[in-house]
């Protein structure tokens, strides 16, 4: 089944088996919880943002399916070194690419493009977006739990 191979690409399986940045950051100054009530996926995200609004470090902990763990793992890799403004702009494009059928993006999503396989699996899109919603919530520092619902 080619769709299945598209969804569970090697990169995703690898990130699930050994996720990057899977730790609580002691000196984080942004923090949020994410929860997907449908799957029971739970995520805690930790970010360190410096005075120039640059994300200098990112980590996460939690439990979830391969898609949500790989998404958080890839995302935390991606965030490091980016400015908040960059990340927000990127999120909008990437979220549209994940969720809307017709979105045509000119942006190069780099390694994160592997996550676009979920488009063929509408029931799983929320698994891929959980980490990103949590990141948004951490940056806005709402202190509330981000939810996919």
């Amino acid at each position: 089944m080619s769709d299945l191979r598209e969804l569970y690409q090697q990169v995703i399986v690898d990130h699930n088996n050994s996720p990057h940045n899977f730790c609580e950051l002691q000196d984080a100054n942004r923090h949020a919880h994410g929860y997907n009530p449908l799957c029971g996926d739970k995520l805690s995200l930790y970010l360190t943002v410096n005075d120039d609004d640059i994300i200098t470090d990112a980590g996460f902990q939690g439990t979830g399916c391969a898609i949500s763990v790989a998404s958080a793992s890839l995302m935390t890799d991606f965030l490091k070194g980016k400015t908040i403004a960059d990340v927000k702009a990127f999120f909008d494009e990437f979220h549209a690419a994940l969720t809307s059928e017709h979105a045509k993006s000119h942006m190069d999503f780099g390694k994160l493009a592997v996550l676009l396989g979920v488009k063929e699996f509408p029931a799983r899109v929320k698994c891929a977006t959980l980490a990103w919603h949590t990141m948004q919530s951490a940056l806005e520092n709402k202190g509330r739990e981000a939810s996919t619902e």
């Binding site: 569970y8 029971g40 698994c127």
Partner: peptide, 25 residues
Amino acid sequence: VHAHDIGTILDCEGVAIRTGHHCAM
């Protein structure tokens, strides 16, 4: 392997099962 990954893979093989908390958290 998380239940949802199992559910998706089984579904691709034509096997419909339920995955989740089954309304019994």
